[in-house]
């Protein structure tokens, strides 16, 4: 195999065509079922905590079921930012996966982690400019999706 790219010669077991597929067997499999179970449990616990906080605001601070959502979200965001700052949230995330990424705490973590990361580049261009580096996509497509859903709803009621 002198001269030519020996690893890429055609017809060999390890040629470029089949490499990615052939190499797949060497990778440890993602434990998908177990990951789902972990995500379900931790995600559920975060939601249960949120419900607990809601009940707390209703019972002690005179909120109603309709408006207790705002202080609850604020509290969860505060807790997630605190845990991100202490360097704990990324460990929870490695364990829980989507379970800690999907709730509002995951959104708070993506904003806070980017803000911490870019602090060394200054308050304006560093923290300010990069805070929504990860969360920006969620906001953009969240707003776009909400707009179209609202449009469809409006048209639906106009027609029928």
């Amino acid at each position: 195999m002198a001269g030519n790219q020996s690893m890429q010669k055609t017809g060999w077991k390890w040629s470029k065509e089949g490499y990615a597929k052939h190499a797949e067997q060497y990778k440890p499999k993602k434990p998908v079922a177990f990951n789902c179970l972990k995500a379900f449990t931790i995600g559920g616990l975060i939601c249960a905590l949120g419900q607990g906080i809601t009940n707390f605001y209703i019972a002690f601070f005179g909120f109603t079921e309709q408006n207790a959502g705002n202080p609850t979200v604020a509290t969860l965001i505060f807790l997630a930012v605190l845990l991100t700052g202490f360097g704990v949230y990324d460990n929870i995330g490695q364990f829980a996966g989507a379970g800690s990424a999907v709730p509002v705490t995951g959104f708070a973590n993506s904003v806070a982690s980017a803000a911490i990361e870019h602090r060394s580049e200054g308050w304006v261009l560093g923290v300010g400019g990069n805070m929504f580096k990860l969360a920006g996509a969620v906001i953009v497509y969240g707003v776009v999706a909400a707009f179209f859903v609202a449009l469809v709803k409006k048209l639906w009621f106009l027609i029928f």
């Binding site: 990778k27 990951n35 949230y89 990324d90 460990n91 995330g93 973590n109």
Partner: peptide, 13 residues
Amino acid sequence: RYPTEYGGQKPPY
């Protein structure tokens, strides 16, 4: 990749 404190899950490989 991502900010160090970002809670994304990494694959075992």
